[in-house]
Design a binder for these strands. Sequence first.
DNA 1: GTGCTTGTTGGCCA
DNA 2: GTGGCCAACAAGCA
Length: 275
Amino acid sequence: MPELAEVDYFRKRWDQAAAGKTVLRVATHDRARIFRGVDSAALQRALTGARLKSSEAAAKQMAFRFSGDARLGIHLGMSGELEVKPAGYELKKHDHLVLFTAKQALVFSDPRMFGRVQFHVGKQPPAWWTKIAPPILSAQFTPAVVAPFLRRRARAPIKAVLLMQERFPGIGNWMADEILWRAAIHPRQKAGSLTAAGIKRLWKECRTVCRLALDAIAGRGRRLPRDLNVNIPESWLFRHRWRPGGHCPKTGKPLAHAEIGGRTTCWSPARQKLK
DNA sequence: GTGCTTGTTGGCCA
DNA sequence: GTGGCCAACAAGCA
């Protein structure tokens, strides 16, 4: 499920419940797939008694910083979630890591197990954090950076290119469709065939969709919406893309679906023409 | 039973 | 070496 804004929403859930609190106990099912490359016994030792100091999200990754220079990284994969439960919580089948404070249980669950836990102790942030590309909403994301990337991926459909995290960190399937729809670019358009004006529109809508999605889904400042997606307006493609017989909220014409770049893609043929 | 699913990775091939 | 495609991973849901 989670892309950029959903990831930040889940991060805030844990952060609001437990920032400044101390972890009294760590529980895990310790599945190798989720903890690949991580010494989970060391993780449990380091986090037990540690205080949650702060957290941050970047792309589809989040990091929770604890006292003792410990960093817990979580990637939610396709079906991961972070929840907050009462302290008496008992681990369920798909739970992978639960941190207990005095009053709460911070639960990471992921039934499909595409998610991942990372862990690092040290003053400097680890490679799994520092190698994440600069945010789309940062000053480093410019048309001048997008253009050569599209040229290098010239023969790939633009939809597939938008999903490449090395240049479009945090963009996932629905955000890619939302961006292309707003920019009026057909998802099958070859990345190398975009005009300078098309690249500019794409760049701008990347930023707009990231900003609007973060506001609507994760909320501004410390505020957290009561649930995912409750604040996403009907004017977005998002609201219509999975509806049977869905219509484009801009043109009122029927939406189209196909597999493009290996992913189910939704677009508005009346608005997004192949050029 | 069938055919999906908001993600990532590694292998194959041009 | 680079770019593009695709299967695999695993489980729930309609």
